[in-house]
């Protein structure tokens, strides 16, 4: 199973056909981190455009530039859908900002339950 990590995030290719990205505890996502994350996602996916499960339950903050990069044409050319996994009030705020203040060009949803998030990604039309 392919795995990699960046400064603040680890990536793993799930055998059900999506990339699992897990952000480190207390990390803050800046634009450079976002670029590295997209590169790593694509690499782990074998340079295929796969869905991604982003576990931001321990994330402490995200800059606007990072958020804008994740929804840019350049980034969405490298992933096909996004499930945001939240738990704490902080991750919920970050997730909500991402979901509600950006225009998404690929299916994107927020979940507080990992199993539901995974099911949604797996059930997406291929």
């Amino acid at each position: 199973m392919a795995e990699t990590r960046t400064k603040i995030c680890s990536f793993m290719l799930d055998e059900r056909g999506f990339v699992h990205a897990r952000l480190d505890a207390g990390a803050t996502m800046e634009e450079s981190d976002a670029r590295e994350a997209i590169d790593a996602t694509f690499r782990v996916a074998g340079e295929k455009r796969l869905p991604v499960l982003v576990d931001l339950r321990l994330l402490a903050g995200e800059s606007r530039a990072a958020r804008m990069y994740f929804v840019s044409d350049e980034a969405v050319a490298r992933y096909s859908a996004c499930a945001l996994l939240v738990a704490s009030p902080v991750s919920r705020v970050i997730g909500t900002f991402f979901l509600r203040l950006s225009e998404h060009k690929v299916p994107t949803r927020m979940f507080s339950n990992e199993a539901e998030a995974t099911k949604w990604l797996v059930d997406l039309p291929k």
């Binding site: 207390g26 402490a60 903050g61 995200e62 800059s63 606007r64 704490s88 009030p89 902080v90 919920r92 705020v93 970050i94 900002f97």
Partner: peptide
Amino acid sequence: VRGTEDVLDAIAVGLNMLAE
């Protein structure tokens, strides 16, 4: 942001993002 992951941290993170 204290990293306490509580509601006040969430409000602080939200406000910071809003200010930006």
